[in-house]
Write a protein that binds this DNA or RNA. Structure first.
Lengths: 223, 223
DNA sequence: TGGCACAATCAGGAAATTGCTGATTATCTA
DNA sequence: TAGATAATCAGCAATTTCCTGATTGTGCCA
């Protein structure tokens, strides 16, 4: 039989062991190795030449996206599936940009893992259903339409205008609509409009969500 | 046979499935249920009366430490093992303070899980080896020698009541007043009162400030 | 054991904010 | 130069917050 050889890379031993168990119950799939951080993952890939690598994003040494990029460049025959806790659009786009073939949420059903692996082996791109299907085409359209913009890489800088980032920061810092209006010398209505545009773009529709977004994208710190 | 009945509470389906597989390969242990967030965990505990609950810390609705505290109070026959990504001393101490019987890193070897469960069933306290053994004695010494000093901890657990922390978490997770009222089955007016008390106690008078506070005090993550 | 502090619950009503629809002006670009 | 997008603002209904005050239960302690 032609087994699909899989390598698991995740910081957490227990998680790796759990995933390994799940995979070993699936027919046609064999776990040929594990790695406990990003750098080790690259070594194991070189050593084992797996068909598929399951990469956690949050790894020490080298994060999963970084690893994915190098795998795509140096080992093009190896397919990458990102295993992530976050449905965060930024991460998904970033993953696709660096050549990942799959993006699976840790929140997925176990059999999704099997489906994902087999889809990727067939040459398809697999995303967890909860991640909008339009992402890929949107993304591809975006980079083919304006390839130069690519270096703006990840986060907020491609999604929001300068004014919007300015206002997002003020919101996350705790300013009220009225306070922002005074600071920026515009009407409160204008601030409201900006806020709703920001929310629309980010797909986040509550203030706490904006604050968390601002923190994780580095616009402000939580301190 | 006297099986040890275990309940698994973790936000991520895949992780739960993996842990379940691991446990099912261990003799004398049976997984009798799962929960995908803190509140659901309490419901399942009430329903199933497990011997052991494995609680992830980072759960939505109610975080693992909060759940542990309530389990310890309302279901003293149920033992709690915290499953965490972090060896963070604060977390460990907090877990012990709220009555957890075990603190296991997700980075542990699979068989540690078995060891931990069986130790806890025997009435022992189990901590992952990588967590300094001195923690417990240090902690105990500290609280017996100068119990007043407790306020030096300065974290949420002393400043807010359990209910208030619960609501702070929900706020920071983006729930509206109305949504929280429905989830907690109280009136919106009650939520409003809680929120204003929380703000009063913390001296923070805006939602973004609460969110940042919740993040830096570990009640939620920014992800 | 009576009372005190405090937690948790809820209400009324004024005041403030938001959401929604729609509009104007300036700028940049295909 | 037309079309898309950004930044600005308004009206108004609906929702939410803020402030004051009240009730109930519980633990504590003098």
């Amino acid at each position: 039989m032609n087994q699909i050889n899989v390598l698991i890379a995740d910081d957490h031993t227990l998680i790796r062991a759990g995933i390994r168990e799940l995979l070993q119950n699936m027919s046609g799939i064999e776990v040929i190795g594990e790695a406990s951080n990003g750098r080790e993952a690259l070594e194991r890939i070189k050593e084992f030449s797996p068909d598929i690598v399951l990469l956690d994003i949050a790894m020490s040494e080298l994060n999963g996206l970084e690893v994915a990029e190098r795998v795509n460049k140096d080992f093009p025959s190896v397919s990458v599936i990102i295993l992530s806790m976050y449905a965060n659009e930024e991460y998904v786009l970033q993953a696709l940009k660096v050549g990942a073939h799959g993006y699976l949420l840790k929140d997925s059903a176990p059999n999704e893992l099997e489906i994902a692996i087999k889809a990727v082996i067939r040459g398809e791109t697999y995303l967890s259903p909860s991640i909008s299907k339009t992402l890929v085409s949107d993304y591809l359209k975006r980079i083919t339409e304006s390839p130069i913009e690519e270096k703006n890489t990840s986060n907020v800088f491609i999604k929001l205008t300068s004014r919007q980032r300015e206002i997002l920061q003020l919101i996350a810092e705790g300013n009220s609509t009225k306070e922002m209006a005074v600071k920026l010398n515009v009407s409160a209505k204008t601030i409201e409009t900006h806020r709703s545009k920001i929310m629309e773009r980010l797909g986040i529709h509550d203030i706490p969500g904006l604050v968390r977004y601002a923190i994780r994208s580095g616009i402000i710190s939580s301190q």
